[in-house]
């Protein structure tokens, strides 16, 4: 508590509260709007910000259940949202597991072993991580096209391709985990090695159990990043039933087929779990994002 307080403090605190509350109202407007729209009947009805006759039609359609209107017309779900969500989760879980396994072992080597070219490799990884994959999409497309001619589960329009392609982005995670390993005292492992443990055993039975928190964070980070990945999946995946949520969701808002209400329900349905996961884990995620990689 500061000792010196100007007299105007009371008004300034009040103004701050009002200002922040006002700001939050503006910021949350889009999110609240979408929830409200998802309960509004019809795709074009605009009128009031709060739905006048709430209807669950968009929610039925988002959940994949055909909706029967009051006049007896049956509307079929326009898109398989749940299937897209399932695709996204499947791809993200497999990617996150692979990324976690490979980046943990690499980070271990970078943190604990001495070998030629270590600094160079670590630095180049940081640099190459900044090149956006969207610029080399032509090459990636050609790469998977060629592989797919011989290994069908890795070709274009397969989830295998999207999963494998996500392995290019491990540098950030390696840095995060390495930062954490660096902060753990290495004397325990050294003692184990003196007692006859192999390097692998020291890693597997001593360091890994100590690092569970950071491994959880990296898993969640990798999971969320893969769920949100758009450019690569948009080029690699073609069939409607193969799409991920990030690629499929935009189909609701094509000008020729504008399904605003249906989109709102699908967006809330699929966005909510991811948002909650993120909010729940935000403390660790933010720590990982800011501190893990770049320590100034």
């Amino acid at each position: 508590m500061a000792m010196v307080q100007p007299r105007s403090t009371k008004y300034r605190v009040l103004a701050s509260h009002l200002g922040m509350l006002g700001f939050i109202v503006i910021i949350l407007f889009p999110l609240l709007m979408v929830i409200s729209i998802s309960f509004r009947s019809g795709n074009f009805a605009s009128g009031s910000l709060l739905p006048e006759n709430p209807s669950l039609e968009h929610w039925y359609l988002a959940l994949g259940i055909p909706y029967t209107g009051e006049d007896g017309t049956v509307t079929q779900p326009p898109f398989p949202v749940l299937l897209w969500l399932w695709n996204s989760i499947k791809i993200a879980v497999v990617s996150a597991v692979l990324i976690l396994a490979l980046s943990t072992t690499s980070a271990y080597a970078f943190a604990r072993m001495r070998f030629a070219g270590k600094g160079f490799v670590l630095k180049s990884m940081l640099i190459f991580q900044m090149f956006p994959p969207v610029l080399s999409l032509v090459a990636l497309y050609a790469l998977f096209d060629k592989i797919g001619n011989h290994v069908s589960w890795l070709g274009l329009n397969t989830h295998g391709a999207v999963i494998v392609a996500s392995l290019g982005g491990m540098a950030l995670h390696i840095w995060t985990i390495k930062g954490y390993f660096d902060s753990i005292d290495r004397s325990l492992e050294e003692a184990a090695i003196v007692d006859g443990a192999t390097t692998w055993q020291a890693f597997r039975y001593i360091l890994l159990p100590l690092s569970v928190p950071i491994l959880v964070v990296v898993f969640i980070l990798a999971f969320i990043m893969t769920i949100m990945e758009y450019p690569m999946a948009s080029v690699l995946l073609v069939d409607t039933d193969k799409l991920t949520l990030a690629v499929g969701a935009q189909q609701y808002l094509y000008e020729q087929n504008y399904l605003w209400g249906d989109f709102a329900a699908a967006a809330v349905l699929s966005g909510l779990p991811i948002t909650l996961i993120f909010l729940y884990c935000q403390k660790w995620i933010v720590g990982g994002l800011t501190a893990g990689g770049v320590k100034g």
Binding site: L102, F128, P133, L135, V138, G168
Partner: peptide
């Protein structure tokens, strides 16, 4: 031995970041 640990990550970057970059 140490390179075995980092090989998968480096190969992933080489295949999906560096090679596409040079190819482009």
């Amino acid at each position: 031995y140490a390179h075995r640990y980092i090989f998968p990550a480096i190969a992933g970057m080489g295949l999906f970041v560096i090679f596409p970059l040079m190819y482009t």
